[in-house]
């Protein structure tokens, strides 16, 4: 249906009405899109093809696509992979003394679950442990 290089207009989402170019087709049936829109996976139902096609490589960069479209590239903040994850709740990771005492029996289970995960990815236990710790008091009340 959609080939690499097809020029489309997005009809849904906050990028709706903007021109973009198909840059890759994925196995799931989704399509990777780049241009005046954000670089993202998109359902073909949310794209309206214009019938035009550009000569663009698979997985092309933002600058290459904008040049082909004849538009100026947009300044984008680079995504930092190692940045701190979101809100740390009454966290086992940060270790507030009052909360640790309350959650000591449950923390053991969360700690055990967190430990095997600790080595492959440093960020994940920080995300996974607070979620588990936050759920436990609700279960205890019920």
């Amino acid at each position: 249906m959609f080939k690499v290089g097809d020029v489309c207009v997005k009809i849904a989402g906050r990028d709706a009405g903007k021109t973009c170019v198909v840059v890759d087709t994925l196995e799931s049936g989704l399509v990777l899109v780049e241009g005046a829109t954000r670089r993202r996976k998109c359902n073909t139902r949310h794209l309206e093809p214009t019938g035009k096609s550009l000569d663009v490589k698979k997985g092309a960069s933002h600058e290459a696509v904008m040049k082909a479209l004849g538009l100026e590239p947009v300044q984008r903040k680079p995504k930092k992979a190692g940045e701190k994850p979101r809100v740390q709740r009454k966290a086992t990771a940060s270790g507030a003394p009052g909360t640790q005492e309350r959650k000591a029996p449950k923390k053991g289970a969360a700690g055990k679950a967190a430990k095997p995960k600790a080595e492959p990815a440093g960020e994940k236990p920080a995300k996974a442990a607070p979620k588990k710790a936050a759920k436990r008091p609700a279960d205890a009340q019920e």
Partner: peptide, 17 residues
């Protein structure tokens, strides 16, 4: 509404073509 806005955007895109 979202369906009506999609129809309008499709119209616009086809007019530009």
């Amino acid at each position: 509404c979202s369906p009506c806005s999609r129809k309008k955007l499709i119209e616009k895109a086809r007019q530009q073509q």
